[in-house]
Design a protein around this nucleic acid. Structure first.
Lengths: 334, 334
DNA sequence: TTGAAAGCGCTACCAT
DNA sequence: ATGGTAGCGCTTTCAA
């Protein structure tokens, strides 16, 4: 339409200012592009250039605010950096994760951020072998060296149980999510350490649940409350589980926190406004997302083989009391 | 590696069973593919085939459970149908939306589902002009014929206010989100209609707020509570806003629902477990997501120009009382 | 039964 | 200052 060769169009439209092209031609081409509402075909560019300026994010549940927050911060960072983010939701299903990882590679994303399901790791080892840039977030594999941004689950669980112990609790229940993933194993380790150190009741029946759904939280809580000696406090590993637990507690006619104390392992915007203000462990999700993105891009844009980076981020402890609905933030340092 | 021509490999790997290729060759090729961990380059395929089996979803805030639920259901449907979903979060910024829509088209998605920011619509008209398949979800443009799946906001708002009127309220506040979008305009219309019909106090100051953030909910509520005659009930247009409103109400030392009643315009999994169980209007988000996906795919896979479909989905009214934390679902039919 | 060639849209390189 | 050409990886058509 501008009467010039495609290569010339290409040069003008990507603003190669250093190439000598008369202003007249430039304008003609730009006008034509505008009139035609021309959009470059990014597939073709990616094919030609070997770079897509796209990264993939694979999370187990985008409808859980925990991962939605992470996704949001990574989205914001990618936009700023001129990358497009592709988000995939595995629904905690290993098969879907493998599918998505392969699919994303197939479509030429420059790198991946993954919160893995952790029922298997072969596909992740494949990524390493191919030297494909990727960063694990929230969950990592302890027997695998890889880029990872995780939070300090063990320490947080320890401090939470210690806090309950100091309030006088002797039987603390632990509502776990899926037990074979990194975060839960770490939290369980911290829980057990505190149980030892504070000489609380050791009872496997107090460790209950195996899933991140509302129902599993509800049922696990009912189990614990039906014990001959039910726990007087609960440490709860997830946003949605917490709601199931509340339902069970209320149905049993119990009061929170008079009859049973709760600490939630993830904080979110509703925590202060629940039935009873919920004391929580807060994960700096936005920060984790940003760090994961920055780390990934560093690897994507570097020519050399950078060494892997693993960062464990400190959590914070938010004490919330029913007497005050005002959020008070206590440093986890005690 | 299998000693055959790429075209033969292509034929085998995509299971063109009708093409006569000896089983021996087939096995050789499949083995080689497996050993090499070969993954087809979807960019190249898309380029060649003119079809990417990818659809794009553009939402204003993925960290809001409202859109996260929609995203989740669309994700599930696409996976089942063999499509990959690309989710983009515009953060309610028009500029980002235009960027994402163009970007998605550039990368050859087969169709788009959009919950638009609605500060402008030129880029949407462009889609229509190019006959690009797309479906609007949750928010549509009243002066534009297009595929759309929305819920019955006006009716829902009317019934909610009517419900409050029947409880004896005379001054009902309306906490709106961004006022220039479809959903809010419709809700406002329903609100005003009920105010007329039930002869409630007409006062523009009772309509307050312009944003979907926690802060805007907080501040709008403070404004309403600071009126000479504060409202005795609130209709609240959003998940996050609701939390800001609760904060404001509690800070004022008021009790929910004794001093002030609340109805939330979106229901979610935490609604029953807030400070006071929240009566809500529930949008069938999963159903809306599925309908939007099915409609989009119908258009994507049809050769002809199908007529546009606009569907308005009924909402439901969930009455929740502080005396019972058990969810009681009342048909919106009364 | 398989290979060769063309082309999807783009851009880097080499010519002119 | 611009045009031609090749090739990214794939699939389809035609040829053998």
């Amino acid at each position: 339409m501008a009467g010039v060769h495609p290569s010339t169009v290409s040069r003008v439209l990507r603003g190669k200012e250093n190439i000598p092209i008369p202003e007249a031609t430039r304008q003609r081409i730009k006008k034509a592009a505008k009139d035609l509402k021309y959009l470059p075909d990014e597939r073709a560019r990616a094919l030609r250039l070997g770079k897509s300026h796209t990264i993939g994010l694979v999370v187990p549940d985008i409808s859980n605010v925990f991962f939605a927050e992470i996704a949001k911060s990574i989205e914001i960072e990618s936009y700023k950096a001129g990358y497009t983010l592709v988000v995939c939701d595995t629904n905690e299903e290993q098969e879907k994760e493998v599918h998505f990882v392969n699919n994303l590679i197939s479509r030429g994303v420059d790198g991946l951020i993954i919160a893995p399901v952790q029922d298997s790791d072969g596909h992740i080892f494949d990524l390493k072998e191919k030297k494909y840039p990727f960063v694990l977030i929230d969950r990592c594999f302890e027997d695998m060296e890889a880029n990872a941004i995780v939070s300090d689950n063990e320490d947080a669980a320890f401090k939470a149980v210690a806090y309950l112990a100091r309030l006088g609790h002797k039987r603390v229940g632990f509502l776990s999510g899926r037990q074979n993933i990194y975060t839960i194993r770490k939290r369980l380790a911290g829980y057990k350490k505190a149980v030892e150190e504070y000489n609380l009741e050791r009872n496997e029946a107090l460790i209950c649940g195996n899933g991140f759904t509302f129902e599993s939280g509800y049922e696990a809580t009912l189990e614990i409350l039906s014990l001959p000696n039910p726990s007087t406090a609960l440490l709860i590993s997830g946003n949605i589980i917490t709601l199931g637990a509340i339902k069970a507690i209320l149905e049993k006619g119990l009061n929170i926190p008079d009859d049973i104390s709760m600490i939630g392992f993830t904080d979110n915007i509703v925590s202060p406004y629940l039935v009873c203000p919920l004391t929580t462990i807060s994960h700096p999700l936005r920060e984790m997302g940003k760090k994961a993105f920055d780390l990934l891009i560093k690897h994507v844009e570097s020519k050399d083989n950078l060494p892997f980076t693993e960062e464990i981020i400190k959590t914070q402890f938010h004490v919330r009391r029913s007497t005050d609905r005002v959020l008070s933030q206590v440093e986890a340092a005690w």
